[in-house]
């Protein structure tokens, strides 16, 4: 068995406005960057996509999807008027189970979920739409525990990396998360969209600059304050997970796009590995 490796690392947004409605032309820069990231990931010939989504919230530890073939139709609870998200993908069961095993060995509470009709979240499906539009690649999806902090997410990410290497997989690891989490609380038109606060915008850019410079340890240290100021999506903990999976605190992230989705911050970032 060849040594496994992480072949790409990404931060991507997960709101459905980037894929629905299908004929929408709004937020073109984010869409195009997302497409580029997906194409780059596929060009690296991954065996599997590993996705941590902040929109899959868990309370009792983390959950990992172990349904062999999740399929159904998902309707977002906020943006149901944009359309439905049908899905049909395969899970890399071996990698999912090894990740669970290694996570539990590291002291985390991580459980499998294998239930017909278990809700697959919007972020996961938006990510798959760009990264695997032909439904060719198996997936490992995992939840965002609302109580977990830096240490837990780093451990969970490390368990992913270790499982990938142990099983000889080539994996793209994807943190599906927003940046600043303040948004418009009234209806807006697409062309009225902007980052809703100047502080949010400045702090998002500061965080992205640190990431672009490879100062990820500094970025992690700054994340709690960043989250407090900007209401960052799930305290930006997906970033910890991603760094745990990449196994590096100096990886440089190339910011392919940054912009608003309904006032919140969104970026597509690609990490060199």
């Amino acid at each position: 068995m060849p040594d496994g490796q992480i072949v790409g690392g990404y931060i991507v947004p997960g709101l459905p406005h980037l894929v629905l409605p299908r004929d929408s032309t709004s937020r073109a820069e984010l869409r195009n960057a997302f497409r580029t990231a997906g194409a780059n990931a596929r060009a690296a010939r991954p065996d599997v996509l590993v996705i941590f989504s902040t929109q899959w919230i868990s309370v009792l530890g983390h959950l990992v999807q172990t349904r062999p073939n999740p399929k159904g139709v998902h309707v977002d609870e906020n943006w149901y008027d944009l359309g439905d998200l049908p899905y049909d993908f395969r899970t890399d069961l071996e990698l999912a189970r090894r990740t669970i095993e290694l996570s539990n060995a590291a002291g985390l509470q991580v459980r499998p979920v294998d239930y017909e009709g278990f809700p697959v979240d919007t972020g996961m499906l938006v990510t798959l739409d760009f990264f695997d539009p032909k439904h060719e690649l198996p997936v490992v999806g995992m939840s965002c525990n609302i109580y977990a902090g830096r240490d837990e997410e780093l451990k969970l990410g490390k368990a992913v990396g270790d499982a990938v290497r142990a099983l000889g997989r080539r994996a793209a690891v994807i943190a599906c998360t927003g940046l600043s989490g303040h948004w418009f609380t009234k209806d807006i038109k697409d062309n009225e969209d902007r980052i809703v606060g100047d502080v949010d915008d400045a702090e998002n850019r500061r965080m992205l600059d640190l990431i672009a410079q490879g100062k990820c340890a500094t970025a992690m240290d700054a994340a709690p304050d960043y989250a407090r100021k900007t209401g960052a999506d799930m305290q930006f903990k997906a970033f910890y997970w991603l760094l745990g999976a990449l196994g590096s605190e100096t990886a440089k992230g190339k910011v392919l796009a940054y912009g608003p989705i309904w006032g919140s911050g969104a970026a597509v970032v690609e990490f060199a590995v």
Binding site: I57, S58, L60, N78, G117, F118, P119, F184, D187
Partner: peptide, 20 residues
Amino acid sequence: LVGHHITRVPRLKGLSVDPI
């Protein structure tokens, strides 16, 4: 996130699996 939403279809049917 945006206002108060109200179910407004004559019938809703399906399988609801608790995510927690």
